[in-house]
Amino acid sequence: MNYLELIGFIQIVLIATTPVVFAGIGELVTEKSGVLNLGVEGMMLVGAVTAFVTLVITGSYVLAFLFSILAGIFMSGLFAFLVLILMSNQVATGLSLTIFGIGLSSMIGKKYIGTPIDGLTPWYFVILSFIIVFLVGYFFYKTKSGLIVRAVGESHNSAHALGYSVLKIRLLAILFGGSMCAFAGSYISICYAPMWQEGMIAGRGWIALALVVFSTWKPSRILIGAYIFGGTSIFQMHLQGKGFRFPDWVPFDNFFSSAPFFNMSPYLATMIVLVIISSNKLRIKLSAPACLTMPFYKGS
């Protein structure tokens, strides 16, 4: 790998990792407030298709991103209504949000598969992703509002007793998470791979969820995790492109040298990293918001 190749490699890693950073930081804010939203994949899909279709119809990039974020707010608003007002099970509701999003996005996007668009340069978004992570970190650890959100996530009864509106704060955190996920989706369908295809998020939403655990709920570590993941995915594609093969003496060398094995390596890497991080039970217990997945019921 010479100097130019290395620069190219880093560029691709930056471009490919950015959407996971957006989605990951959005989900982190939601989880900090004590709500687990497993609908990331679905919200990203709906965000991606909304941005794409808006762009095709109106030709305006601004409107595309705007509508995409609105779609994210709609999807996460639905989720918020169910888990906050009706106090439904967060895991099941998030799963149904993903399933709903898969159906909704392919229904909206049906007519637009294969429509060509002019992609947007990704660099502004790459920079934006770093800024947002910094801002979220600043918000949580340097501002009073950030402290309140964390308090709601750690102990909703105490926050309520102090007079903070637990539901309102959680609603805002969920909506922020939803809009970030939709924005990540729109980045994918407009900048990263300018097209629409059913299921084009391809598991990135789940990777983002894994990132939040990896980060032990600390914003800056979302970046580290995302780039470990982005780096391995691009590196394996690079090896595949070069026609890399394991030598014959490696057991199952045919399997390990095959495209499917390379394609599964990012998922395997995510799992291995998760295992390493979670194996320290105390660390997870101390850093996870204590009220994560617990519904808040005021009583009468």
Partner: peptide
């Protein structure tokens, strides 16, 4: 598209 089935499945669970 056949994926509209998922839409219904998601709705039912909601």
């Amino acid at each position: 598209p056949a994926a509209v089935g998922f839409l219904f499945q998601g709705l039912v669970l909601f």
